[in-house]
Design a protein around this nucleic acid. Structure first.
Lengths: 338, 338
DNA sequence: CTGAAAGCGCTAACAA
DNA sequence: TTGTTAGCGCTTTCAG
């Protein structure tokens, strides 16, 4: 077995023609005779020729791979986004390189650097929880590599942005609960340094205000997104805020924790206490009672972001950053439907 | 803004030295003076130089990216595997390109081709449901690109293989049920053309035999892995096989369907009927009753596969294909624990 | 329609 | 320690 892949020159030599002719034949150039084209293709197969895409790209000054940076891949929401990104990119002829930041700013910055050095033709990013500004994006700006942000976004950085409308999603969910007759709705919020939790909170608050329900700061529990925190929070509510008759949790997991407490204490759901989560994790549909939640359409966020990315790659100069919000959908289930 | 990235030559020109000196300075070559090294690095920063990794790789005849092909990314098990692969690869300095076959042999073959053309230094693959042989792997063989198979494997193809031990996992789960006192255990199997379902079935069968329980072919339902099929199958069992007192499902989803039927008919679980699934989906822990299942350690499969891949890349000639099985773990929960 | 020649950005002998 | 030269595999002017 030869150590070396067969090249265009090998084919040329075999046929006593030049590399340029072979190149033309292989890339369906108009200025080439059918005869030699046939011949070239035949011997290419014979010699088991595999075009070297990256050499071609180097020469052409183009590329066919998109870099994607996400906090972590094995969370259902992100996996869905990647699925959307890959599907669209693949259809358009792009490969995707995936990097995980693991919620570390340092790793995120390193990933940007290696992607730039590998001359990806665009970078799609959902920033880590540690990331507060976009200084480390500068490398791409100077290299003129277009960036698209999705889901977790640095607002101040000027780029296209694709995200779920957390404000509206939360707003609708809380309105739904009010319509079901709940009067005192508590909120398990995420950490407010993550934009999306701030927005879900705002939606919650505004829904109350718009329906003449007094907003009570004491009923907002920041940083309650894990199952354990949900249990803790629900106990707090039952002990210290007896009037509360419903919960809007910014995460399905904390809603799940709350549900378990309510069931344990034999408080009937949804009759005496309503619960709703957010994100629509797989289990929301399967637990008992099934959990009202909000579907964010991760796959659609991914495919939309990829479409924008590809456009920016193709028409870089003429393109101006866009902000697209994907409207989430309220999924009404047993936990909140009287 | 310049259309062109700054290169080694730009730095050289600026400093009135040659490109090779710059190259040496940048790559910490021993034969270069500290003075010029400092100077080079300084002006590199000044000119905002970004090394072109792929040009370097082309020249060196090496690469730093690994191709990964999976059926689909937004399934928890696969997402976990990818997570493991990315973590290990990244640590070792490799990027990963991800392709989804979407269970299509055609797309799988195309992906292999583009990965080969992009001169990845190795390919990791979990084959599509349509894939029955490894003819389309040939391209890589001839190009001497090492392959590692994981999870869904073509046995006949000679390569390293990393997978979960489905036989043992199923065996242990069924033994557990027998120990709990169940005597007539039915089995919802997956389609047998997928190797892993065949193995889970074998494990089930052998566990019965080893415990002097007569194996009854009629209690095996092939292709029952969806939730709907689980409901259908459970109804069949209750109507036609009254003696059956337990179910080993090869998928958590069909187990879930079965559970819902049992609950609806007020058959007490686990007292009068035991249920166990497989895969340990996220919801298994959260539903009521919680579902006994088997954890496959996707992340570990991924990281192990990546380690093997990287070794094969580094010591290609001297390496001989390995087969590694990751031992799954029985997770006993309420649905089967009397 | 085909060939000759140059070069994408980098590295690595070989010389000096 | 630095420079010269060649070339990784490909495309693309410019001639012919």
């Amino acid at each position: 077995m030869s150590k070396r892949n067969t090249t265009i020159h090998d084919i040329a030599r075999e046929l006593n023609i030049t590399a340029s002719s072979v190149s033309r034949a292989l890339s369906n150039h108009p200025r080439i005779s059918e005869a030699t084209k046939k011949l070239v293709i035949k011997t290419a197969n014979k010699l088991n020729y595999k075009p070297n895409t990256i050499a071609a790209n180097l020469r052409k000054g183009t590329g066919n791979t998109i870099g994607v940076i996400i906090p972590v891949i094995n969370r259902f929401f992100f996996a869905n986004i990647i699925h959307g990104i890959e599907s669209i990119s693949n259809k358009a002829g792009y490969n995707i390189i995936i990097c995980q930041s693991n919620e570390s700013l340092k790793k995120e910055a390193e990933s940007i650097k290696t992607l730039v050095n590998n001359r990806v033709c665009g970078i799609m990013i959902s920033v880590s929880a540690e990331t507060e500004n976009a200084e480390h994006f500068e490398a791409t700006v100077k290299s003129e590599i277009p960036i698209v942000q999705f889901d977790r976004i640095i607002e101040k950085f000027n780029s296209s942005k694709i995200a779920s409308d957390d404000y509206k999603g939360a707003y609708n969910e809380v309105v739904h609960m009010i319509e079901q007759g709940y009067k005192n709705i508590a909120h398990f919020a995420g950490p407010f340094y993550l934009n999306m939790y701030e927005k879900r909170f705002s939606g919650y608050k505004q829904a109350l205000i718009d329906n003449n329900i007094k907003f009570d700061k004491k009923l907002v529990f920041e940083g309650f997104i894990s199952r354990e925190k949900g249990i803790e929070g629900m106990n707090l509510i039952l002990n210290q805020h007896k009037k509360v008759d419903a919960l809007f949790a910014a995460s399905d997991l904390s809603a799940l924790g709350a549900l378990s407490v309510l069931k344990e204490k034999h408080i009937s759901i949804p009759k005496h206490f309503g619960v709703a989560g957010y994100v629509n994790e797989l289990f929301a549909e399967y637990i008992d009672p099934s959990l009202t939640s909000t579907e964010q359409f991760g796959e659609e966020i991914g495919s939309m972001a990829a479409k924008v990315m590809i456009e920016e790659i193709m028409y870089r100069q003429k393109t101006t950053p866009r902000t697209i919000t994907i409207t989430p959908k309220l999924i009404k289930r047993a936990s909140s439907s009287k």
